[in-house]
C-alpha cells in the first residue's frame, strides 16, 4: 500500500503525533487487535508463517503512517484495511496461492436465473451440528477469497456493512449482495461435504 492510498483513504487531517503519543496509540489502539489480525491473515493465506509476515508488515505500515490515523476512530477497521490491501497488492503476488478468482464472474453466475437452482436450500441445521469446526473451516477455506473475506469480516470479526465497505473499498450494497452469495457458497460447500460424509442420512 502506498503512502498516498493510506492518506487519501481516510481523508482526514494529517496528525502530527509526538513520539510518546505514537507509542501510546500503537500500544493501546493497535496492539489489542493482534489476535484478530493474525487469524484474518491465516484465513487469507492458510499458512502460519505467511500470516505472521502479513501481520508484521501490516503493523509496520500502521506505524509508518500513524499520522494518517485519527486517534479514537476505528483502529481495528483501519488495520484490517491495511492488511487486506497488503494481501492483495503485495502478498498474493508472491505467495503460492492460486491467482485471484474473478469474482465478477462468480457474482454474475450467482445473479443469473440459473443460480437459484444451484443454491442449496436443503442444508439442515442438524447436519451442521454434526460437523466439527475443522470441517466448517475447511468449507470456508474452499470458497474464493473475496467471498471468504466478507464472511470472516462479518461473522467472525463483527464488522458492520459500512465498516466492511471501507475496509474492502466496495459500495455498501455490494457488501450486502456479496455476503449473501458468500453464505450461499458456504452452504453449498457444507451440503456437498455432508453428502460425501453421509451426514444427511436420516438418523
Amino acid at each position: 500500500m502506498s503512502e498516498d492510498v493510506l492518506q487519501d483513504e481516510q481523508e482526514v487531517q494529517r496528525q502530527n503525533y509526538s513520539e510518546k503519543e505514537k507509542t501510546e496509540i500503537f500500544d493501546s489502539e493497535f496492539m489489542p487487535h493482534v489476535d484478530s489480525m493474525y487469524n484474518f491473515g491465516y484465513r487469507l493465506t492458510f499458512d502460519e508463517d505467511d500470516a505472521k509476515d502479513l501481520v508484521q508488515d501490516t503493523y509496520l505500515k500502521a506505524f509508518r503512517f500513524i499520522n494518517s490515523f485519527q486517534r479514537g476512530t476505528n483502529a481495528k477497521a483501519w488495520l484490517f484495511r491495511i492488511l487486506k490491501n497488503s494481501f492483495i497488492n503485495e502478498f498474493r503476488k508472491k505467495s503460492k496461492q492460486p491467482a485471484k478468482v474473478d469474482y465478477n464472474e462468480v457474482e454474475q453466475f450467482y445473479n443469473s436465473d440459473d443460480a437459484g437452482e444451484n443454491i442449496t436450500t436443503d442444508l439442515r441445521v442438524e447436519t451442521v451440528q454434526h460437523m466439527i469446526g475443522d470441517e466448517i473451516s475447511g468449507a470456508l477455506n474452499g470458497i474464493p477469497v473475496d467471498f471468504r473475506t466478507v464472511i470472516i469480516l462479518s461473522d467472525l470479526e463483527g464488522f458492520t456493512y459500512e465498516e466492511m465497505s471501507k475496509i474492502l473499498d466496495i459500495p455498501i450494497g455490494t457488501v450486502r449482495s456479496r455476503l449473501h452469495r458468500a453464505r450461499n457458497m458456504l452452504k453449498e460447500k457444507l451440503a456437498g461435504y455432508a453428502k460425501e460424509m453421509g451426514y444427511n442420512k436420516e438418523d
Binding site: Q129, M131, I136, L156
Partner: peptide, 26 residues
C-alpha cells in the same frame, strides 16, 4: 449461530513471539 460458533472455536493460536517481533520491528 451454529456456523459462527464452530468457526469461532477454530481460531489459530497466536505465535508467542509475534507481539514482541512487531514491537521490535517498529
Amino acid at each position: 449461530e451454529e456456523i459462527q460458533k464452530k468457526l469461532a472455536t477454530y481460531d489459530k493460536e497466536i505465535p508467542n513471539d509475534l507481539a514482541q517481533m512487531i514491537r521490535k520491528s517498529v
